[in-house]
Amino acid sequence: MTTTIAPSPVLEASGVTMRFGGLTAVRNVDLTVNSGEIVGLIGPNGAGKTTFFNCLTGLYVPTEGKVSYKGTVLPPKPHLVTQAGIARTFQNIRLFANMTVLENVLVGRHTRTKEGLWSALLRGPGFKKAEAKSRERAMELLEFIGLQHKADHLARNLPYGEQRKLEIARALASEPGLLLLDEPTAGMNPQETRATEELVFAIRDMGIAVLVIEHDMRFIFNLCDRVTVLMQGEKLVEGTSDVVQGDERVIAAYLGEPFEGAPGDEEVAEVEAAAAAAEGADASPEAGDAPAAPADEAPAGTPEAETEDAETASPEADAQGKTRTEGDSQ
């Protein structure tokens, strides 16, 4: 199903299967991410996206299949995966809440520094040099995400959006070749989402490939060079935004398929007939029923309609979003 075979794949997952007892959360998924690429991973809730992520990063040991990074097979240990060059963020923010912003990023530098206990106790020139360099690099990253002025804040005191950014900075601190983002814009308002979009492009321009899970379709289709759709643990389709957007199976996965024999059609026809009748006769008894029927139908509306709604309501939502984040920070 892979569309293109690129010259330098960063990540190659082949035949990844993850079973929990009798439940197969991920079944035989192949995925390739090439250098300089942003790849999206979408799918309805429970499709196995995060499980697949955990298999990639060594948090889970896949039951079958293998994951390799730049040609070498990854050991199923999270810290070795990070050391190899894959960094990740988490779906529900997992910062070190009681450490400062700067310290969070410094922890991210762990694999790229060597100083052990002895050098910490003896505090030789090498230790000081390495520490100073780590700090410098961490501050650069904080500047990159625009949090340098909050370096000494506790991470838990940051507003939500900044916590998300900090998680990305912490992941970048490990100097990865591939960054895995698990729903980076969850809970963000449209402006923050746009800012994140730009941040991800900037990360790509740094030469880091990105694999991103997201439910925000606008975000995904703006951002990604390729999109992979997971459905019930299996890869449904993979391709460019247009291919995926046009794919019937994807629409079916998200919206459900029409039933055999279209059982809803009769009702729709009935309602339409009733509405027509109501229009014709001025004060007929059906007039009361008629407006109620389309209202029933509304929830089955397309997601595009919903996002459109969200879009038009955005100015207010932004204002609310802002006050909300401020409220959260306290």
Partner: peptide, 30 residues
């Protein structure tokens, strides 16, 4: 010893493990 160990790479990784062990290992800490 306590102060020097706490304010170093190793001390930070201890605190990181205390805060969230899964996230700490995902940051490359053994």
């Amino acid at each position: 010893v306590f102060n020097r160990a706490a304010n170093s790479r190793i001390g930070r990784s201890w605190i990181a493990i205390r805060e969230d062990e899964t996230a700490a290992t995902a940051m490359g800490i053994n």
